[in-house]
Every structure is written in C-alpha cells, then in structure tokens.
Amino acid sequence: MFLDPKAQDASHRIRVTVMQGMVETSADSSVVLTTVLGSCIAACLFDPIARVGGMNHFLLAEPSSSQVNADTHYGIYLMELLVNTMLKQGASKSRMKAHIYGGGNIHRNMQPIGQRNSELAERFLNTESIMISHRDVGGSNARRVDFLAASGKARCRHVDGSAAPAAKPTPVATKSMGDVEFF
C-alpha cells in the first residue's frame, strides 16, 4: 500500500517522502521530509537565517571513470542539486549546516556501497565548506529519518534487521511448452 507522500499527519505536519534520486527543500515549518535508508545516504542541509532546509537521497556515490554523465542515481549530482536548490530559495552556503544519515552496509557479502556513499557526502561537504553538525552513518542497520527542514531538527531511528519480517520462500511454478520453459 502506498500513502500520499504529502499526507498530513496527526500533529498537523505535512510529511513529504524523499525517495531515491530525489531532492526536496522547504521553508515551511509544517513540512517534515522523511525517508528510509539502508546503504543509501540522505544529506539534510539547513540555513538557520533563511530558515530553509532540504534533503536528498542517493544510492550510489559517483559514476565510474568510464561514464560521462552523473544523473539522479549519483550522490555527486544530488549533493550539488540540493545546495543549488536551497541557494535559489535564499539560503547561503556559508551558513549551511549538514546532517548525514545512512550508509549502512546492510548485506555483509556485498561491496561496501554504504561506506563509499558516506565518504562521498563527507568529502563533498568538506570541499564546499559546509559544516557537518551531526552524522549517523555506517553500521548494518537501516534507518528512518525525519527532518523538519525549516528548523533544521532531525530524528533518526535505527531499524534492527531482526525487526524485519522473515523472508518466506515462494514456490516456483513451471509450465513446459516444447523447448521453452516458462517460470
């Protein structure tokens, strides 16, 4: 079941879900930007004077050297987009503060994508002279992040892997039709 990403909750706040490849910004004090992360990173930026903030959500740090373009899959693009969108809303880069969340290495046998993502976010923010006021990265748990963009307040809750429902094997039905087998 999918819920309206701009649904109003019981506290009269408007929840905006930030999915992979997205950037959302707001100066509205009733807006809560929210996301769920595994190996992905969410960077939350805030300008306390302009009272504008934003969040991005990226899956991969940056394209390989053989790729020419960085698109919405890549953190390098989404970090730039978040900063530039906030600048258009009156924020100043010199006043921005950052929180970074996620970057968990959820599956032990996979490459450390989460670690690469968090390293990219930190490197970008340091290069741009944006102070990181809070970080909650790494580990092996998923996270749920809620960010009040206009005030710069955030909440991060860890989701222990044991809290997830157990995977149920599904039987595979096969139907043979000559030399081609359909699953």
Rank of each mutant, 00 (worst) to 15 (best):
R123M: 15
A70M: 02
R15D: 04
L33W: 03
M96P: 08
V145N: 06
Q20N: 05
G178Y: 11
I100Q: 05
A43Q: 02
C156V: 15
M177W: 12
G139V: 13
F58S: 05
A121V: 05
M110P: 00
L125E: 09
F46W: 11
T25S: 09
N126C: 03
L81Y: 00
E181S: 10
I41H: 06
M96F: 11
A163D: 13
D179T: 15
L3R: 04
V68R: 14
R135W: 07
A164G: 09
N84T: 04
Q89R: 15
S29P: 13
G152P: 06
Q89A: 12
I14P: 01
N84M: 03
Q89P: 01
C156Y: 08
N117P: 13
G38V: 04
D160Q: 08
P48L: 04
H134F: 14
L60A: 12
S129G: 03
S140G: 10
R143L: 14
F58P: 05
K168S: 03
D4M: 11
N56W: 05
G38R: 04
E80S: 01
H57D: 01
E128K: 15
F46N: 13
G152E: 03
V23F: 07
G104K: 09
A42P: 08
Q111C: 02
I14F: 05
D179N: 14
R108Y: 13
I130M: 07
I113T: 07
V83H: 10
K93A: 04
A154E: 12
Q111D: 09
H134K: 14
K175E: 10
R51K: 06
R108W: 08
V68M: 14
G138P: 07
L59M: 14
H107A: 12
L78D: 02
G104L: 10
E62H: 12
I132W: 12
A166S: 15
A43P: 02
Y74G: 00
T35K: 08
